[in-house]
Design a protein around this nucleic acid. Structure first.
Length: 574
DNA sequence: GCCGTTTTCGGCCCGACTGTTTTCAGTCG
C-alpha cells in the first residue's frame, strides 16, 4: 500500500472528526500523521512490517496511530473511517473546499437542511433556504453561490514559473511608486513550491494609497476584490488572487516570516518561542508587551536562538533541529551551476540548431553542456538510430570545434524500452560522452515491471543518469508506479546519477525524494531538458527544487568543473 | 491523539476578518 493511500485514510478521518466537532487537537494529530506518512521517503508499510523498526519513532505517531497504521496496511482501511462515515456522509467533505465553509457550518447544513453534496448546497442556496439557519445570513448565502460558480478557478494552482512571471511583473510595476520602500512576495511562492495558489505581496511605504492605486491600474489586474487600509486583494488575468499587505517597517521581518510560512514551520517556531517565554506574531517577537524583534527576519529567528533559515526549507521537515545543531545546509545556488546536461536540438524535437544551443549556453556563462537528442524509439520526436546518432555526434564535434570557451558533450536521451532493454546497444553508448536514460512508453505498467526497467538502466554502466525518474506532469499526469526507494538504493549502489528535471511541469525528482537521495549520497544533475533556447532558462526552477530538497553544491553533479565532471563520468563506467 | 531536562497530565500557534450578532463563533492563512 502506498504512502498517499495511508495518508488519505487519516486525512478523511481528520475531516470527519472535525465536522463532528471533535477535539481539534485530536484532529490535528491525524493531520500531522497524514503529513508524516505522505512525506516519508520509504513506504510506511515497509516500516510497519520490519520487526526491527518502530512506527512510534516517526514524528507525531504514538501508540494508537501506530496500531492504526498496521491495521490500514494489512486491511487497506480502518474501521474508524467506516464508523465515521456512518455518522457523516462523505460528500460533506467536498463542502470544506468552499471558501467560507468550514467543518462547523458544513455540519449545520447537513443536520438542519440535510445537505450532503455541492449540488444540494447549490439548490438550497438558490431556494434561499440557507439564510434561514442560525449563524447564516443573506450575505453568506450569496457568497456560497458565488464560490460555487468560481470553485474551479479559486482552487486552481499554477506552476511556480507562471506565478513568477506575474510576481516579477507586479513588483516591477509597483517599484515605480516613490512612496514604496520594501517589497517582497512571501507565501509558498517564496518557499518555491512547485505550484502556487496565490501571491502574498508585502510592502512597506510612506503612504499606502499610491501603492494601492498603482496596483489597481496594473494591466494584468482583472478585478479588485477587497481594498482596506492595510490590505488589498485583486484577481489577476490568469485567475490567481494577489493579496497586497502594507506593514510597518518595524514589523516587516516578522510579517515576512509569518506570511512565508509554512504553517507547520510557524507552529514549530512559535512553540519554541513559547518555551522561551516569548510570543511570535506577524508584528514581531514579544516578551510580555515589549517587542524584542521584528524589523528583519534574521532578527526574528535570532530572538528564538536560531540562525536565519532559507524559505525553501521551512516545511517542518527537521530544519529547526538542523538550525539548532548548526547543520543547516548551504543550499546550492543558480550561479554555481556550470552546465546543462539535458537538451534537444532541431535534429529531433527541439527548435534550435546545435550551434544556437551551444551559443546560448555560452551566453549563460556555462563551462559545458550536453546535447541529448532522443533515441530511435521516440518516433514522434524523430529519434535517432545508431547511424544517425553517430552522424549527429560527428556534426556536434565539428560545430563545437569552431566555438571556443565551452565544452560540448556528445550525449543521447536513451529510451528505456517496454521490455526493460535499452534502445541502443552498448557499443554505441560507449562512444557517447554522456547518456541520460528515460521512459516514454509503457508508463502504465505495473509497479514491479516499470521499476525493473529503471533498475536495468541503472545497472548498465554506460548509462550515467536517469532523466525525469518518475515521469509525472504536475496536475496532469501521475508518476509511474515506480518503487522509488529501490531506485534510490540502486542508484547509490551503482553510482548512477539522478536528475531533477527543471521543466516547470516536471520538477522530478521532487523535494521529498531529493531529501532521501541526499541521505544516500546520490549525485543529482539539475537539467532543463530544453527544447528551445528560451527553455534553458528553466534551470532556475530546477535549482529551487534542489534547494527544497536541501541539496548543497557538492550534491549536484553540474556544479562541478569540466575536469571533475569528466572524471566522474569515467568512474561510472569502470 | 501526541508529547515531556519545568510535565505521564494538561497543555497543544496566533491574530484578523466576516457576518452574524448584541458579545462572538467560525473561518482563514
Amino acid at each position: 500500500m502506498e504512502n498517499p493511500e495511508v495518508a488519505m485514510v487519516f486525512e478523511e478521518i481528520a475531516d470527519l472528526l472535525e465536522i463532528l466537532g471533535e477535539n481539534p487537537f485530536r484532529v490535528r494529530a491525524y493531520r500531522n500523521a497524514a503529513r508524516t506518512i505522505r512525506e516519508l521517503p520509504e513506504p510506511v508499510e515497509q516500516v510497519a512490517r520490519d520487526p526491527g523498526r518502530r512506527l512510534e519513532d516517526l514524528p507525531g505517531i504514538g501508540k494508537d496511530l501506530a496500531e492504526k497504521i498496521r491495521v490500514i496496511v494489512n486491511t487497506g482501511d480502518h474501521p474508524l473511517r467506516q464508523e465515521l462515515r456512518q455518522k457523516v456522509p462523505p460528500g460533506l467533505r467536498d463542502l470544506l473546499d468552499i471558501p467560507g465553509l468550514g467543518p462547523k457550518r458544513a455540519y449545520a447544513l447537513y443536520k438542519q437542511l440535510g445537505i450532503t453534496s455541492r449540488e444540494e448546497l447549490k439548490k438550497a442556496a438558490q431556494a434561499r433556504r440557507i439564510r434561514t439557519l442560525r449563524g447564516f445570513g443573506a450575505k453568506t448565502e450569496q457568497a456560497i453561490l458565488e464560490a460555487l460558480e468560481h470553485l474551479e478557478e479559486v482552487s486552481r494552482r499554477v506552476y511556480l514559473a507562471e506565478a513568477k512571471v506575474f510576481a516579477d511583473a507586479v513588483i516591477q510595476h509597483l517599484r515605480a511608486v516613490p512612496e514604496l520602500h520594501q517589497i517582497e512576495v512571501a507565501g509558498s511562492f517564496r518557499r518555491r513550491k512547485e505550484t502556487v495558489g496565490d501571491l502574498d505581496v508585502l510592502v512597506t511605504c510612506d503612504q499606502s494609497a499610491p501603492v494601492m492605486d498603482r496596483l489597481a491600474e496594473y494591466s494584468a489586474v482583472r478585478d479588485v476584490l477587497v481594498r482596506g487600509d492595510t490590505k488589498m486583494s485583486v484577481r489577476l488575468a490568469n485567475g490567481m488572487q494577489l493579496d497586497l499587505r502594507v506593514v510597518p517597517e518595524e514589523s516587516y521581518g516578522a510579517a515576512l516570516q509569518y506570511f512565508t510560512g509554512s504553517q507547520a514551520h510557524n507552529i514549530q517556531l512559535r512553540r519554541r518561542a513559547q518555551e522561551m517565554g516569548l510570543k511570535i506574531n506577524e508584528y514581531g517577537v514579544f516578551r510580555g508587551e515589549e517587542r524584542v524583534a521584528g524589523r528583519t527576519e534574521e532578527e526574528v529567528y535570532a530572538a528564538v536562538g536560531l540562525p536565519w533559515i532559507p524559505p525553501e526549507l521551512r516545511e517542518a521537515r527537521g530544519e529547526i533541529e538542523w538550525a539548532l545543531e548548526g547543520k543547516l545546509p548551504k543550499l546550492v545556488e543558480l550561479t554555481q551551476i556550470r552546465g546543462d546536461l539535458h537538451m534537444h536540438t532541431n535534429v529531433t524535437d527541439g527548435r534550435a540548431s546545435i550551434e544556437q544551443m551551444i551559443l546560448a549556453c555560452k551566453e549563460l556563462g556555462y563551462q559545458y553542456l550536453a546535447i541529448t537528442d532522443h533515441s530511435k524509439r521516440v518516433t514522434v520526436a524523430g529519434g535517432l538510430d545508431a547511424d544517425a546518432l553517430r552522424a549527429h555526434w560527428r556534426n556536434i564535434d565539428r560545430i563545437a570545434s569552431r566555438i571556443a570557451g565551452i565544452t560540448v558533450l556528445k550525449g543521447v536521451e536513451l529510451d528505456i524500452l517496454e521490455d526493460g532493454s535499452l534502445d541502443l546497444p552498448d557499443d554505441v553508448l560507449a562512444e557517447a560522452d554522456w547518456v541520460v536514460a528515460s521512459i516514454h512508453y509503457g508508463q502504465n505498467q505495473p509497479r514491479q515491471q516499470i521499476t525493473r526497467r529503471i533498475l536495468n538502466a541503472i545497472e548498465n554502466k554506460y548509462v550515467h543518469c536517469i532523466a525525469h525518474p518518475t515521469g509525472r506532469l504536475i496536475g496532469k499526469r501521475k508518476a509511474y508506479d515506480v518503487d522509488l526507494d529501490l531506485v534510490l538504493k540502486a542508484a547509490a549502489d551503482h553510482g548512477c546519477f539522478l536528475e531533477v528535471n527543471a521543466q516547470p511541469s516536471r520538477l522530478d525528482l521532487d523535494d521529498v525524494a531529493l531529501l532521501a537521495a541526499r541521505e544516500k549520497g546520490i549525485l543529482i544533475a539539475i537539467n532543463t531538458d530544453a527544447h528551445s533556447i528560451d527553455e534553458l532558462r528553466f534551470m532556475e526552477f530546477g535549482v529551487y527544487q534542489a534547494r527544497r530538497g536541501a541539496l548543497e553544491a557538492k550534491d549536484v553533479l553540474n556544479t562541478r568543473s569540466v575536469r571533475e565532471l569528466r572524471k566522474l563520468l569515467t568512474q561510472r563506467r569502470k
